[in-house]
Write a protein that binds this DNA or RNA. Sequence first.
DNA 1: TTGAAAGCGCTAACAA
DNA 2: TTGTTAGCGCTTTCAA
Lengths: 358, 358
Amino acid sequence: MPRSRVAGVQDGAPKPEGEPVLPAATLRDVAALAGVDRSTASRVLRDDPVQSVREDTRERIFEAARRLRYRPNAIAASLRTRSTQTLAFVIPDLDNIGFTAIARGVQTAASAAGYLVLLAEASPDEDRALFERLTAERRIDGLLVANAGVQLARELPSGVPAVPTVFVNRAIKGAAASVTVDDRRGAEMAIEHLVELGHENIGFIAGRPDADTSRRRRQGVRSALKTAGLELRDAWVASGDYTERGGAEAARAILAAKRPYPTAIFAANLVSGLGALRVFIEAGINVPADLSLIVMDAHPLAAHTGPPLTTVEMPLYAMGVAAAEMLIGAIRGGPLEHRVIRDEPRIVVRESTTSPAR
Amino acid sequence: MPRSRVAGVQDGAPKPEGEPVLPAATLRDVAALAGVDRSTASRVLRDDPVQSVREDTRERIFEAARRLRYRPNAIAASLRTRSTQTLAFVIPDLDNIGFTAIARGVQTAASAAGYLVLLAEASPDEDRALFERLTAERRIDGLLVANAGVQLARELPSGVPAVPTVFVNRAIKGAAASVTVDDRRGAEMAIEHLVELGHENIGFIAGRPDADTSRRRRQGVRSALKTAGLELRDAWVASGDYTERGGAEAARAILAAKRPYPTAIFAANLVSGLGALRVFIEAGINVPADLSLIVMDAHPLAAHTGPPLTTVEMPLYAMGVAAAEMLIGAIRGGPLEHRVIRDEPRIVVRESTTSPAR
DNA sequence: TTGAAAGCGCTAACAA
DNA sequence: TTGTTAGCGCTTTCAA
């Protein structure tokens, strides 16, 4: 039996009924206690290098702040400085497990620079309102947009005061900045893996036709096949739309075409690969004995599908870090640019790929 | 071939080099253009019911605001009203797929009430700093905390001006408010499902011993087994710690115990169930023929494991909605309380459970 | 080395 | 029905 202390109802912070909740101390209170002017207190507490302050004055101010548990009011500071120390990271779908690695990179880089991150999900029909709310109302200093459709970039009303914006995992022509990964190389590596296993008949479940990532992945497929002296048959290509359902439909389309079937398939992302996998299994196809499957996007769960999926792991965390760093740099006057993270993708071999049957 | 317009590099918002970016209009500008005082403009634009305004004045003000593309500065309003219209939703781990349904519920309810949600991930060693930053600096009006450990509640310095806080999926004694689901009932239903299939030897992979959800799930297991006249053998129970690794270890522990093995196992959450599933499969155990497995937590990906997992789907979305609504109510002066969402959990039967072999 | 004064953009008493 | 006034709490010249 576990000790009841552990298994019992948890203790939390008991309400401190005794201590009256004082109204939060302001800079004025600190200054009064330290016997200085508010401006002096402000300079000291912010470590303002512009003017020097006598050591004992500094100490008096710090001591007063400590005793009053002074915390600056960020809202008031923002109003004055016109800087909120906050970024927004907008994603289209929280359920899309691909974004967590990016988000973690963003968070890490932002925290390191003292920025807070407002992570928000916005479906295509809501995003305009959200963007307006964030930027027009001056709640953020900069914006990161992942996976969002063109709509959003196109529709941002030009009257809205522009905050620096970096697109993540999406190269939008005309946008000032973006950070992407080398999708083309990742797709090439997927095909190379299949070719090394001996496959000659390779199919492709593509992404959303209107997404630029999809275009680059398709290019990678073509170029790697060409290098291997192989051909991409029309009947073996279908759009999986980056969704589970799209992947399933693509799989059915490939199965519906006349034989021969391909012996291996590369799906342009994890979710569409899952949809396809399901269709194959339900059709009685043995993966990988009859058909190998490799998908783009790494996620812990890929290890738990039936069979575990061989994946192409892209440097998503690094992409998030780079995007946040570029954005913060831009806020501070640095350049916005289009950047591609060239860290080599990694093939994680699991059980869904093997050599073709003879 | 797709039209090149579609497959090509995407167009975004071209930089409007022509239009000079005007400094954003303020209330003062609107008032001047409409020929009224700032206060009048403010009242009209906020739809302040306190005082009435002549119809033509209203129209002049709206027209001026429209022409100047006026958007109120939320920071300035916040400073004055001491309300940010922003909530924070703090979660311990973005990768935990269980939280997305909750987050979506929170978002929906918050948006409906005009609140923005700041979704933040905070590991146990960071959360204090984050909380201070959010509350002490007065960036938010209320706080939702999901899955967080006791630490956080216990350690919140009492000097920090308290924002209303609602714990989500976690009942913390001493905390003012929480919203949870009926974990006990969910666990009972899992066991009932196995019993109905004819299982008599049922094992349990429990959650983190220090989590209150884990305690309730354990209670449910015991009570349902008791009702069925079955016993829970010590050798068939192990803590999976709510992690994949913990689940794997628990599975190994159960396999290491002397026979007989249980014919079915209930894992207290999805991730630990995945860890266990993997161990079973690697041990050559056929799931479900040799061993049925049911897990708590619904997620689309549960349909894609090998075999697809039978799950207990809890009303997580409803929990998120309820938590946000309670919090917003509290901000507006309403009560904080401990609430349990009693919506009946749902068993989603997939292929990982079947009747025991004879 | 410090203080005085002004003001970020808005809202809310109160007065007219 | 509308305007006057006084801040919210902070930062930032400028002057002493």
